[in-house]
Amino acid sequence: MRRFEYARPRTPQEAVDLVAGSDDAAFLAGGSNLVDHLKVGIASPGVLVDVGGLGLDRVEETDGGLRIGAGVRNSDLAAHPVVRSRYAVLARSLLAGASAQIRHQATTAGNLLQRTRCVYFYDATTPCNKREPGTGCSAVDGYQRYNAILGASAACVTVHPSDLAVGLAVLDATVEVLGPDGARTLPLADLHRLPGDSPEQDTTLAHGELITAVTVPRLPEGAVSTYYKARDRASYAFALVSVAAVVAGDEVRVAWGGVAHRPWRATVLEEALRGGPLDEETVRAACLEELAPATTGPGTAFKLEMVTGATAMVLTDLAGRAR
């Protein structure tokens, strides 16, 4: 057993200073992902800084929408009356994730920062560039069912596992961050990275930066939204593909999960559908444009039709409800 130090700071700034001051320190919130990594040896920090008691667990209505504290539990956020009534895509994405027990423990920021569930990442006997840079990617020629089809690289073909991140991506959420150099905000779209040559870097956060809140803009009047997840079993399974969508008048927003190293905002599809009909033929044609750069293997070719069919089903249903 590897020994580590445990710290419970009293303020977010104290937490940031503790982690930023040591290359061997990490934040601990709900721990539903990090504790797994500690058990199998993927992570071995010398210092764990517990951010669970910093008061970052409130959901607040603002003039512009919602401000969600980084420590808000997934189950509490899904049950929040404003989320349920105005942001169906957010509630559904939360309820599609993990199990009820894990949702009671997992936090908003922790969910966004969870690492891949690629089987080779978890198997320390196999090469994995995300776990050990420069060793290779076993998933390229190995088990491919959960591999990416968009934005992958020769160094990594894994996908981001979060359902919540996909729901927030379609809502144009922003992330509030506190770091050694002060506070900053960034679009959620800029939080997660594509793998490139550095797949070990999941996000654009610097060491010691702490997510303190996520803000969600108010949806336009009359907007309808939803989240659909295709998976191998009915619960406690990660997405093969998922679709988060918003329809508001002529505006269509779509984000995909299970297809890339980060939530994939389908901007080409959105532009193709703007102001036009949302019938199955039109949506499928727009999906074809979005998927033009996709790369598939024997184990991932099914995702092309799966994400296309799911998107057509979701958007035609939302279009009917929006009339």
Rank of each mutant, 00 (worst) to 15 (best):
T204F: 10
E176N: 07
V72S: 02
V247W: 01
A106I: 11
L291A: 00
A248G: 01
A319G: 05
S225Q: 04
N111H: 11
G21Y: 12
G182M: 10
G151R: 06
P45E: 09
P12C: 03
A285R: 15
P81M: 14
W256E: 00
A266Q: 06
D163Q: 09
P180A: 15
A322D: 07
R193D: 07
S138D: 01
D24A: 13
P12K: 01
S75C: 13
P187G: 02
V89C: 14
A266N: 06
C156K: 10
G299H: 04
S225H: 05
D141Y: 13
G208S: 08
A20N: 10
V82D: 08
A15G: 03
A189K: 08
L191N: 05
G64D: 07
G257T: 11
Q144E: 15
R131W: 12
A88C: 00
F238P: 00
G222S: 10
E61V: 08
A20I: 11
L113P: 04
A183D: 02
D317E: 15
A266M: 07
D57I: 03
L38S: 09
G69H: 02
A20C: 12
L56C: 02
T300V: 01
R265H: 03
S75Q: 15
S242H: 07
T204P: 08
A91P: 03
V40I: 15
L304D: 13
R233Q: 13
